[in-house]
Amino acid sequence: TTIEWNGTKITVDNPQKAKELAKKIAKKLGLTVKVHGNTITIE
Rank of each mutant, 00 (worst) to 15 (best):
T1V: 14
T1R: 05
T1P: 07
T1H: 09
T1N: 07
T1K: 05
T1A: 09
T2Y: 07
T2F: 09
T2P: 06
T2S: 08
T2Q: 09
T2E: 07
T2G: 06
T2M: 09
T2W: 09
I3G: 07
I3Y: 03
I3A: 06
I3Q: 06
I3P: 05
I3V: 09
I3K: 06
I3E: 05
I3R: 04
I3W: 03
I3C: 11
E4I: 15
E4M: 12
E4Q: 11
E4D: 08
E4Y: 13
E4S: 10
E4P: 05
W5I: 10
W5L: 07
W5F: 12
W5E: 02
W5D: 02
W5P: 02
N6Q: 10
N6K: 08
N6H: 12
N6P: 08
N6A: 09
N6C: 15
N6M: 11
N6V: 08
N6I: 08
N6L: 12
N6Y: 13
N6F: 15
G7R: 05
G7V: 10
G7K: 06
G7H: 08
G7S: 07
G7D: 04
G7I: 10
G7Q: 07
G7L: 06
G7M: 06
T8A: 09
T8W: 15
T8Y: 15
T8K: 14
T8G: 12
T8C: 15
T8I: 15
K9I: 12
K9R: 13
K9W: 09
K9L: 08
K9N: 05
K9S: 10
K9G: 02
K9E: 04
K9T: 11
K9H: 08
K9Q: 09
K9D: 02
I10S: 01
I10D: 00
I10E: 00
I10M: 06
I10Y: 08
I10K: 01
I10P: 00
I10V: 05
I10N: 01
I10W: 12
I10L: 07
T11D: 03
T11A: 05
T11K: 10
T11R: 11
T11C: 14
T11Q: 09
T11V: 14
V12H: 02
V12N: 01
V12M: 12
V12P: 01
V12E: 01
V12S: 02
V12W: 03
V12K: 01
V12R: 01
V12C: 15
V12Y: 06
V12F: 13
D13T: 12
D13G: 11
D13N: 13
D13A: 14
D13P: 10
D13K: 13
D13L: 14
D13R: 14
D13I: 12
D13E: 12
N14Y: 04
N14R: 03
N14K: 03
N14G: 05
N14V: 03
N14W: 05
N14I: 04
N14Q: 03
N14E: 03
N14D: 13
P15F: 15
P15C: 08
P15T: 05
P15L: 13
P15Q: 06
P15A: 10
P15E: 08
P15D: 04
P15R: 11
P15S: 06
P15G: 05
P15W: 14
Q16S: 09
Q16C: 08
Q16V: 12
Q16P: 02
Q16R: 14
Q16K: 14
Q16E: 11
Q16Y: 13
Q16G: 08
Q16A: 11
K17S: 06
K17D: 06
K17C: 15
K17N: 06
K17T: 09
K17Y: 12
K17P: 01
K17Q: 10
K17W: 12
K17F: 11
A18C: 07
A18Y: 04
A18V: 03
A18E: 00
A18K: 00
A18W: 07
A18M: 03
A18G: 02
K19Y: 15
K19V: 14
K19R: 14
K19D: 03
K19Q: 10
E20K: 14
E20D: 08
E20C: 09
E20P: 01
L21M: 09
L21P: 00
L21K: 02
L21V: 05
L21F: 10
L21E: 01
L21A: 02
L21T: 02
L21G: 00
A22F: 04
A22M: 03
A22P: 00
A22D: 00
A22I: 05
A22G: 02
A22L: 04
A22T: 01
A22N: 00
A22Y: 02
A22V: 03
A22Q: 01
K23V: 11
K23W: 15
K23E: 13
K23M: 14
K23C: 15
K23H: 12
K23D: 13
K23A: 12
K23Q: 12
K23N: 11
K24T: 07
K24F: 15
K24W: 15
K24D: 04
K24C: 15
K24N: 06
K24I: 13
K24L: 13
K24R: 14
K24P: 00
K24H: 10
K24Y: 15
K24G: 04
I25Y: 04
I25W: 10
I25P: 00
I25E: 00
I25L: 11
I25F: 07
I25H: 01
I25R: 01
I25V: 02
I25N: 00
A26K: 07
A26R: 14
A26C: 05
A26H: 04
A26M: 07
A26D: 01
A26V: 03
A26L: 05
A26Y: 06
K27C: 10
K27Q: 11
K27D: 10
K27F: 09
K27Y: 08
K27R: 13
K27I: 09
K27P: 00
K27E: 11
K27H: 09
K28Y: 14
K28L: 13
K28I: 12
K28E: 10
K28Q: 09
K28V: 11
K28F: 13
K28N: 07
K28M: 12
K28R: 14
L29H: 11
L29N: 05
L29Y: 15
L29I: 04
L29Q: 04
L29V: 03
L29E: 03
G30S: 03
G30Y: 04
G30D: 02
G30H: 07
G30P: 01
G30N: 06
G30I: 01
G30L: 02
G30C: 07
L31S: 03
L31T: 03
L31K: 04
L31R: 05
L31V: 08
L31H: 04
L31C: 08
L31N: 02
L31D: 01
L31W: 10
L31E: 01
T32L: 09
T32S: 10
T32E: 06
T32G: 04
T32H: 09
T32D: 04
T32Q: 10
T32A: 10
T32I: 12
T32W: 04
T32P: 05
V33Y: 10
V33I: 13
V33W: 08
V33R: 00
V33C: 07
V33K: 00
V33N: 00
V33S: 02
K34H: 12
K34A: 07
K34E: 05
K34F: 10
K34D: 02
K34T: 12
K34R: 13
K34G: 02
K34Y: 11
K34N: 08
K34V: 11
K34P: 00
K34I: 11
V35R: 06
V35I: 14
V35T: 05
V35C: 06
V35N: 02
V35F: 12
H36I: 12
H36F: 11
H36M: 11
H36A: 10
H36S: 12
H36G: 03
H36D: 12
H36T: 11
H36P: 00
H36N: 13
H36C: 15
G37A: 05
G37P: 02
G37N: 06
G37F: 04
G37K: 04
G37D: 05
G37I: 03
G37Q: 05
G37R: 04
G37H: 05
N38H: 07
N38E: 03
N38K: 06
N38I: 04
N38Y: 04
N38S: 10
N38Q: 06
N38T: 08
N38M: 07
T39E: 06
T39I: 12
T39H: 09
T39S: 08
T39Q: 08
I40Y: 03
I40Q: 00
I40R: 00
I40D: 00
I40W: 02
I40K: 00
I40F: 03
I40A: 01
I40N: 00
I40P: 00
I40H: 01
I40V: 05
T41I: 13
T41E: 05
T41M: 11
T41A: 04
T41R: 11
T41Y: 15
T41C: 08
T41F: 14
T41D: 02
T41V: 12
I42T: 01
I42V: 06
I42Q: 00
I42A: 01
I42G: 00
I42R: 00
I42L: 15
I42C: 03
I42P: 00
E43R: 11
E43K: 10
E43I: 14
E43V: 14
E43F: 15
E43A: 11
E43L: 14
E43G: 13
E43Q: 12
E43C: 15
E43Y: 15
E43P: 05
E43T: 13
